[in-house]
Computed example of a mutant assay.
Amino acid sequence: MNNIIFGPIHSRRFGKSLGVDLSPGKKQCNFDCLYCELDPAKTMRGQDEVLSVGQIVDAVKKGLQEHQDIDVLTVTANGEPTLYPYLNELIDEINKIKGSTKTLILSNAATIDEPNVQEALMKFDEVKLSLDCATQKCLKKLDRSHEGIDVERIKAGMLEFKKHYRGELVVEVLVVKTLNDKPEEITALNEYLLKLQPTRIDLGTIDRPPAFDVKPVSYEELLAISHRFDASLPLYIASRKKTDISSSCYTYEEILETLSKRPLTQEDIEVLFDKESQKRFENLLHKHKIRPVETNGVKFYKKV
C-alpha cells in the first residue's frame, strides 16, 4: 500500500506535490505513447487491477500526516487515472480530508468526453490535460491510442468541460521530433487552443528516457514552435534541458518585439538575453513598457 503515495516532488509550476498513484501495481492506460518512460503495454479501456477507495484514502491520510507542508495532492497513475472506476467517490473522500491542500489530476484527456469523468474532474482544484495532437493521424501514431478513441471527441469533451469547470485548467503539449512538430500539427493545435482558452499551456519535450526510440526537440526549436502559437495564449515553455543556445544582445525595440510575439518567463529571459539586454529589460519594466502577468503560479512578462 505504501507505493500508492510517492514524493514529495518540488515543481516550479505546482509547488510541493505529494503523488497519489491509482495503479501502483502495473501500467493501466488507454494510450501507449511513444515517449512514455514506462515499458510498452497493451492499451485498455478500463482498469483490470483495481484498488479500493478505502486503501487509497488510508494511504493519503498517512501521507498528509507525514508531510504537513504539501501544496498539492497530485492524482496520477502508472497509466491513466480516469480509468479508475471509483474516481468520483475517491475525490469526494479526499476533499473531506485534504484541508487547505489543493488537488490536481494529471490526465491524457482520452476520456474527457464521458459525463462521469467530467463530473469527477469538476471536483479537483486543478486539472492538467495532455493534448499532443489535434489530428487523428497524429494521435494514433504518437499517443498510440486505444481503439475507438477519437481526437474530435477529446476536443469536444475538453470544450464542454471548460464551459462548466471553475478551477485551473492546464493543457500540456509534449513535442516529439518529426512527429508533432510539423507546421500543420502546430496550426491545428493553435486553432483549437484559441477556442479552449485554458488557464495555462505547458509546451515541453521528452526529458526522461522514452520506451521507444523517439527524440526530443531542443529549447531553440521549442521557442520557434512557441512563436507559431497566437501571442494571446498563456504558453509556458516547460523544458530547458539540452539548452545549447547562447544569450544574445537585444535592443530595446527587439525586446519589445520579442515579447509581442510571445510572453516570456524569467527563466526564458535569463537564457535568451545577455547581461546588457537584461538591464534594458529591467529599464522597460521600470518604465511600464513591459508588465508581469501571473498565470497559475507562473509569472510571464509581456509587452504593454
Rank of each mutant, 00 (worst) to 15 (best):
Y165M: 08
V117Q: 01
F281D: 02
V20I: 15
K279T: 11
H67M: 09
K275N: 11
D58N: 14
G46K: 10
E147V: 10
N190F: 03
K26T: 10
V20Y: 02
G46A: 14
K241T: 08
T258A: 15
N296E: 09
G297H: 06
E89F: 00
R153C: 07
C138P: 01
K287G: 04
C133P: 02
I97D: 02
E184T: 05
I91E: 06
T111G: 04
V60R: 03
S247K: 10
L121K: 04
R280Y: 13
I154R: 03
G204C: 12
E172D: 11
S218M: 13
T76D: 09
E89P: 00
P183Q: 09
H67A: 07
R45Y: 02
D39R: 11
L174S: 06
A224H: 08
S246I: 14
Y301A: 10
I245Q: 12
Y252A: 13
R153N: 14
K289V: 06
D207F: 14
I255E: 06
P85I: 02
Y165W: 06
L203N: 01
D69W: 02
P263V: 07
R12K: 13
I237K: 04
F273R: 02
K302H: 10
G7R: 04
E184G: 01
D244W: 10
E267V: 14
R228M: 12
R144I: 09
S145E: 07
C29M: 04
S247Q: 09
P209C: 12
T187L: 13
V175P: 02
N30A: 03
A110C: 12
L139I: 08
D230H: 11
T258S: 15
L259R: 05
D125R: 06
D39Y: 08
D32Q: 05
L129W: 00
T76L: 13
F31C: 05
E126Q: 13
L104D: 06
D143S: 15
G63A: 08
T43E: 02
N116V: 10
T265L: 10
T76A: 13
H286Y: 14
P209H: 07
I290G: 07
I91D: 04
T251I: 07
E160Q: 11
F124Q: 02
R291T: 13
S247N: 14
A59N: 11
L284R: 06
Q47G: 01
D48V: 00
G148K: 09
D69F: 00
I206F: 07
Y250R: 08
D213M: 11
L222V: 05
K140I: 15
T243G: 11
L193C: 06
K26D: 05
Y301S: 08
L104P: 10
M122Y: 07
Q278V: 03
V298M: 13
Q118Y: 05
T295V: 13
D48G: 01
K123Q: 12
F14P: 01
